[in-house]
Protein backbone atom coordinates (compact mmCIF):
# COMPACT_ATOMS: atom_id res chain seq x y z
CA UNK A 1 0.00 0.00 0.00
CA UNK A 2 1.40 3.40 -0.94
CA UNK A 3 1.58 6.21 1.60
CA UNK A 4 -1.07 7.97 -0.39
CA UNK A 5 -3.54 5.12 -0.03
CA UNK A 6 -2.64 4.63 3.59
CA UNK A 7 -3.41 8.28 4.24
CA UNK A 8 -6.86 8.01 2.68
CA UNK A 9 -7.56 4.82 4.64
CA UNK A 10 -6.54 6.54 7.86
CA UNK A 11 -8.73 9.53 6.99
CA UNK A 12 -11.78 7.32 6.47
CA UNK A 13 -11.12 5.38 9.64
CA UNK A 14 -10.85 8.63 11.47
CA UNK A 15 -14.02 10.10 9.99
CA UNK A 16 -16.03 6.94 10.66
CA UNK A 17 -14.98 6.97 14.25
CA UNK A 18 -12.77 3.88 14.27
CA UNK A 19 -9.65 5.78 15.14
CA UNK A 20 -8.51 6.07 18.70
CA UNK A 21 -8.09 9.80 18.49
CA UNK A 22 -10.17 11.37 21.18
CA UNK A 23 -13.60 12.61 20.18
CA UNK A 24 -13.09 16.18 21.29
CA UNK A 25 -9.94 16.44 19.26
CA UNK A 26 -11.79 15.15 16.26
CA UNK A 27 -14.64 17.65 16.56
CA UNK A 28 -12.11 20.41 17.05
CA UNK A 29 -10.18 19.39 13.93
CA UNK A 30 -13.34 19.20 11.84
CA UNK A 31 -14.50 22.70 12.87
CA UNK A 32 -10.97 24.00 12.44
CA UNK A 33 -10.81 22.62 8.89
CA UNK A 34 -14.16 24.22 8.06
CA UNK A 35 -12.85 27.53 9.40
CA UNK A 36 -9.66 27.19 7.38
CA UNK A 37 -11.64 26.72 4.15
CA UNK A 38 -13.87 29.69 5.06
CA UNK A 39 -10.77 31.78 5.76
CA UNK A 40 -9.20 30.94 2.42
CA UNK A 41 -12.48 31.72 0.64
CA UNK A 42 -12.99 35.02 2.46
CA UNK A 43 -9.49 36.27 1.74
CA UNK A 44 -9.63 34.84 -1.77
CA UNK A 45 -12.81 36.71 -2.62
CA UNK A 46 -11.34 39.88 -1.12
CA UNK A 47 -8.30 39.34 -3.32
CA UNK A 48 -10.50 39.13 -6.42
CA UNK A 49 -12.44 42.30 -5.58
CA UNK A 50 -9.92 44.53 -3.77
CA UNK A 51 -6.62 43.56 -5.35
CA UNK A 52 -7.59 42.35 -8.80
CA UNK A 53 -10.41 44.94 -8.82
CA UNK A 54 -12.96 42.54 -10.26
CA UNK A 55 -16.36 43.99 -9.32
CA UNK A 56 -18.51 41.32 -7.59
CA UNK A 57 -21.86 40.65 -9.23
CA UNK A 58 -25.10 40.47 -7.25
CA UNK A 59 -25.00 36.71 -6.73
CA UNK A 60 -21.37 36.95 -5.65
CA UNK A 61 -22.44 39.43 -3.00
CA UNK A 62 -25.04 37.06 -1.66
CA UNK A 63 -22.46 34.29 -1.44
CA UNK A 64 -20.10 36.65 0.38
CA UNK A 65 -22.88 37.49 2.83
CA UNK A 66 -22.92 33.82 3.83
CA UNK A 67 -19.18 33.15 3.61
CA UNK A 68 -17.68 36.09 5.51
CA UNK A 69 -19.51 35.44 8.81
CA UNK A 70 -18.31 31.80 8.74
CA UNK A 71 -14.70 32.86 9.10
CA UNK A 72 -15.65 34.76 12.27
CA UNK A 73 -18.27 32.46 13.81
CA UNK A 74 -16.41 29.15 13.43
CA UNK A 75 -13.40 30.16 15.58
CA UNK A 76 -15.86 31.00 18.37
CA UNK A 77 -16.72 27.32 18.46
CA UNK A 78 -13.04 26.38 18.75
CA UNK A 79 -12.15 28.31 21.91
CA UNK A 80 -13.64 26.84 24.02
CA UNK A 81 -14.78 23.88 21.98
CA UNK A 82 -18.51 24.25 21.37
CA UNK A 83 -20.21 21.85 19.02
CA UNK A 84 -23.27 24.09 18.94
CA UNK A 85 -21.45 26.33 16.51
CA UNK A 86 -22.53 23.83 13.85
CA UNK A 87 -26.11 24.99 14.33
CA UNK A 88 -25.21 28.54 13.42
CA UNK A 89 -22.63 27.82 10.78
CA UNK A 90 -24.45 25.07 8.91
CA UNK A 91 -27.46 27.25 8.12
CA UNK A 92 -25.17 29.91 6.64
CA UNK A 93 -23.10 27.49 4.59
CA UNK A 94 -26.18 25.63 3.33
CA UNK A 95 -27.70 28.91 2.10
CA UNK A 96 -24.39 29.85 0.49
CA UNK A 97 -24.17 26.45 -1.17
CA UNK A 98 -27.61 26.88 -2.74
CA UNK A 99 -26.74 30.28 -4.14
CA UNK A 100 -23.37 29.08 -5.40
CA UNK A 101 -25.08 26.15 -7.11
CA UNK A 102 -27.59 28.50 -8.73
CA UNK A 103 -24.77 30.79 -9.82
CA UNK A 104 -22.84 27.91 -11.33
CA UNK A 105 -25.86 26.76 -13.32
CA UNK A 106 -26.39 30.33 -14.51
CA UNK A 107 -22.78 30.72 -15.58
CA UNK A 108 -22.88 27.35 -17.33
CA UNK A 109 -25.97 28.47 -19.23
CA UNK A 110 -28.18 25.70 -17.82
CA UNK A 111 -30.51 28.37 -16.46
CA UNK A 112 -31.56 30.68 -19.30
CA UNK A 113 -30.85 34.38 -19.33
CA UNK A 114 -34.47 35.38 -18.80
CA UNK A 115 -34.65 34.37 -15.16
CA UNK A 116 -31.30 35.90 -14.36
CA UNK A 117 -31.77 38.05 -11.26
CA UNK A 118 -29.16 40.65 -12.15
CA UNK A 119 -29.70 42.48 -15.36
CA UNK A 120 -28.01 45.72 -14.39
CA UNK A 121 -24.44 46.20 -13.37
CA UNK A 122 -22.17 43.21 -13.75
CA UNK A 123 -23.90 40.22 -15.27
CA UNK A 124 -23.58 37.10 -13.11
CA UNK A 125 -23.31 34.92 -16.20
CA UNK A 126 -20.11 36.62 -17.31
CA UNK A 127 -17.05 34.51 -16.63
CA UNK A 128 -14.11 36.66 -15.54
CA UNK A 129 -11.69 33.93 -14.49
CA UNK A 130 -11.25 30.47 -15.90
CA UNK A 131 -8.38 28.25 -14.84
CA UNK A 132 -7.94 24.91 -16.64
CA UNK A 133 -11.21 25.61 -18.41
CA UNK A 134 -13.52 24.76 -15.52
CA UNK A 135 -12.27 26.50 -12.38
CA UNK A 136 -14.31 29.71 -12.28
CA UNK A 137 -15.09 31.94 -9.30
CA UNK A 138 -18.59 30.44 -8.78
CA UNK A 139 -16.98 26.98 -9.04
CA UNK A 140 -14.52 27.85 -6.27
CA UNK A 141 -17.35 29.27 -4.18
CA UNK A 142 -19.46 26.16 -4.61
CA UNK A 143 -16.49 23.94 -3.79
CA UNK A 144 -15.76 25.85 -0.58
CA UNK A 145 -19.36 25.83 0.57
CA UNK A 146 -19.63 22.13 -0.23
CA UNK A 147 -16.50 21.25 1.77
CA UNK A 148 -17.68 23.37 4.70
CA UNK A 149 -21.15 21.80 4.66
CA UNK A 150 -19.67 18.27 4.57
CA UNK A 151 -17.27 19.02 7.42
CA UNK A 152 -20.03 20.56 9.53
CA UNK A 153 -22.41 17.66 8.88
CA UNK A 154 -19.67 15.25 9.95
CA UNK A 155 -19.19 17.34 13.08
CA UNK A 156 -22.90 17.20 13.76
CA UNK A 157 -22.86 13.42 13.89
CA UNK A 158 -19.95 13.19 16.31
CA UNK A 159 -21.21 12.35 19.76
CA UNK A 160 -19.60 14.17 22.61
CA UNK A 161 -20.18 12.98 26.17
Amino acid sequence: MSTHQRFIMKLFEWLLGKSDMNKENKVWTLIFSAWFVAGISTLGSLFFSEIMKLPPCTLCWYQRIFMFPLSLILPLGLFPLDKNVVRYALILSAAGLLIAFFHLLLAAGVIPESIQPCRQGIPCSKTVISWFGFVTIPFLSMLSFLVIVVLLVLTYFQRLK
Partner: peptide, 26 residues
Protein backbone atom coordinates in the same frame (compact mmCIF):
# COMPACT_ATOMS: atom_id res chain seq x y z
CA UNK B 1 -1.40 22.97 20.96
CA UNK B 2 -4.73 23.80 19.29
CA UNK B 3 -4.40 27.47 20.06
CA UNK B 4 -0.96 27.54 18.47
CA UNK B 5 -2.24 25.70 15.42
CA UNK B 6 -5.10 28.19 15.04
CA UNK B 7 -2.89 31.24 15.39
CA UNK B 8 -0.29 29.88 12.99
CA UNK B 9 -3.00 29.06 10.43
CA UNK B 10 -4.55 32.53 10.74
CA UNK B 11 -1.18 34.23 10.39
CA UNK B 12 -0.27 32.08 7.38
CA UNK B 13 -3.57 32.96 5.66
CA UNK B 14 -3.10 36.67 6.20
CA UNK B 15 0.56 36.56 5.15
CA UNK B 16 -0.25 34.69 1.95
CA UNK B 17 -2.89 37.31 1.22
CA UNK B 18 -0.53 40.23 1.83
CA UNK B 19 2.38 38.74 -0.13
CA UNK B 20 0.02 37.78 -2.95
CA UNK B 21 -1.34 41.33 -3.07
CA UNK B 22 2.13 42.82 -3.17
CA UNK B 23 3.24 40.50 -5.93
CA UNK B 24 0.10 41.05 -7.95
CA UNK B 25 0.24 44.83 -7.62
CA UNK B 26 3.89 44.94 -8.62
Amino acid sequence: KQKTLFIVAAVVLVLVFLIGSQTYNR
